[in-house]
Amino acid sequence: MKIEDILKQVNDIFIDTLDNDQVIITEATTANDVEEWDSLTHIQLVVAIEKHFKIRFTSKEIQSWNNVGEMLTCIQEKGV
């Protein structure tokens, strides 16, 4: 799947998980850019993304991400 397509699906997951239909994420987005993206919603986002794409991350992978783009690349590298 192209990164743009993964981004669109991940954006929908953010909207649903954060209960905010105004959220627009880009590859450059970080947790500091989204008010509702705190430590607990971060867990909910990871769980929702793992469920949606039927993948599993490692804690090391998650800790390595500096922005949404790096997360999207990680998703893509899992064969999505």
Partner: peptide
């Protein structure tokens, strides 16, 4: 469901 990446 087990999500080890976030200990959930």
């Amino acid at each position: 469901g087990i999500y080890e990446s976030v200990n959930t």
